[in-house]
Amino acid sequence: MLLIECPWCGQCEQSEFHYGGEAHLTRATPESDNTELTGFLFLRSNVRGDTAERWFHAAGCRRWFNARRNTVDDRFICTYKPGQNAPQETTDA
């Protein structure tokens, strides 16, 4: 069970959180073309390595936030509030 750093509450157990999938997707609007729609609805990068993803602190402050995690070794590089850009550090794994 992972330990996750909520930007508001600090480190909490994974069981308090819900996973929210890949972060920084651009929501399709009525003006989007089919490629953009497909990208938003169905295509995910499924990275082996550093990835940005969404988490929801469901059993805590009930706020959404983003995290950068290395999918190989599950290291959390950082967590940050929605609307912020992903910090650019990388891991070597």
Binding site: R54, F56, A58, R62, R63, W64, P82, G83
Partner: peptide, 10 residues
Amino acid sequence: QLLEDYRQTE
């Protein structure tokens, strides 16, 4: 939860 998602992030 879905409404909170749109409210907070979108």
